[in-house]
């Protein structure tokens, strides 16, 4: 599928959900559910989506949703799948986790690793808005270098963002991909592809957050596109041990095609305290990362250790 008009017209995330204006997560979730379809059970740990779904007795989902403890979504998911298998009801059903970066990078990493090691028949979506947004923008291990949060309030975070993709890759998932909410066709296609495989699948989505990243809500799509176009957020997938860049990232192997990182950083208030030196450190990190991506693209042998 190449055009946005070809995306399924059914809506599974219903109007009236409780996300903030310009929420990147709601945008991604809408397209993911369109790709997953009706026969999908969603496990949601604590996070923004606990709120986005709405307050009882209303719900913004037309799929079954099971809210889980913060750290245990992947294990809940294993349980639901084993239960459905025991009852012979698992055929043609997707059981997925939709979790934030806190529930993935930090508190839920152990349960995630366990489910991945067991090659649980699930798709795990990490909705990454790069901080604990639901509790009011506290720093997480997904928060990037220099970003201001309410727990790194004056000079910004001093550590780099945790490389979760390498951690997940080490578990040899059957399918792994990155995506952004601003390129919905790329995202939609990846979910369709993930659905075709069985075993553990992981899709990591960058979701711009207007209040958390401190930008006007009209810029959600612009910023998520800039994340890709500057090379900050490479779009790729790993299928059967083969690494492929996808969509707009394909042309970025040539450094000349990558926009200056400042265009991405300058739009966001959270990066307002970055020094010139720090910006050049970030640019160097991106360039070094792309050298590695180039190596992976050309790699003929086995990707995993």
């Amino acid at each position: 599928m190449n055009k946005i008009l070809e995306i399924c017209l059914d809506e599974f995330l219903l109007p009236g959900h409780a996300a903030c204006a310009g929420c990147g997560a709601a945008l991604a979730l809408r397209h993911i559910l369109k790709a997953l379809g009706k026969n999908t059970i969603i496990i949601i740990p604590a996070g923004c989506s606990s709120i986005i779904q709405g307050v009882y007795p209303k719900t913004a989902f037309s799929n079954p949703v099971l809210n889980s403890a913060f750290d245990s979504a992947a294990a809940y998911c294993s349980g639901v799948i084993e239960g459905l298998k025991a009852k012979n009801k698992f055929k043609n059903i997707n059981v997925v986790v939709w979790a934030g970066d806190g529930a993935t990078f930090d508190i839920g990493l152990q349960a995630l690793s366990g489910a991945a090691e067991r090659n649980t028949d699930m798709i795990y979506f990490c909705d990454d808005n790069e901080a604990y947004m639901n509790t009011g923008i506290q720093s997480s291990s997904a928060t990037p270098l220099g970003a201001l949060t309410t727990t790194t309030p004056l000079i910004g975070k001093r550590e780099r963002k945790k490389d979760i993709i390498s951690i997940i890759l080490a578990h040899e998932p059957t399918y792994l991909a990155t995506a952004v909410s601003g390129y919905p066709v790329d995202l939609y296609n990846k979910v369709l592809k993930a659905k075709k495989y069985s075993g553990f699948r992981f899709i990591h989505i960058l979701s711009p957050c207007p209040p958390g990243w401190r930008f006007d809500s009209k810029y959600t799509v612009t910023i998520s596109k800039l994340a890709v176009d500057t090379g900050m957020w490479p779009l790729f997938e790993v299928v059967e041990s083969k690494f492929n860049l996808t969509g707009p990232s394909l042309k970025l192997l040539n450094p000349k095609n990558r926009k200056n990182i400042e265009t991405y950083l300058a739009l966001q208030g959270r990066f307002s305290k970055l020094t010139k030196t720090e910006i050049s450190i970030i640019q160097k990190f991106i360039d070094a990362r792309w050298e590695q991506l180039k190596y992976l693209t050309n790699l003929k042998g086995r990707l995993f250790l």
Binding site: I43, L66, S68, A69, D71, S72, A74, A75, Y76, C77, S78, G79, V80, I81, E82, G83, L84, K85, A86, K87, K89, Q110, A111, S113, G114, E117, R118
Partner: peptide, 27 residues
């Protein structure tokens, strides 16, 4: 006959039990 899941912690043991019980299973 039971399905057995070897989990990585007691928290996940209980989480799996919860998930499976939500499908109507005896766990």
């Amino acid at each position: 006959k039971s399905r057995i899941i070897r989990v990585e912690s007691e928290r996940s043991a209980m989480a799996v039990c919860i998930g499976a019980a939500f499908t109507g299973c005896r766990v």
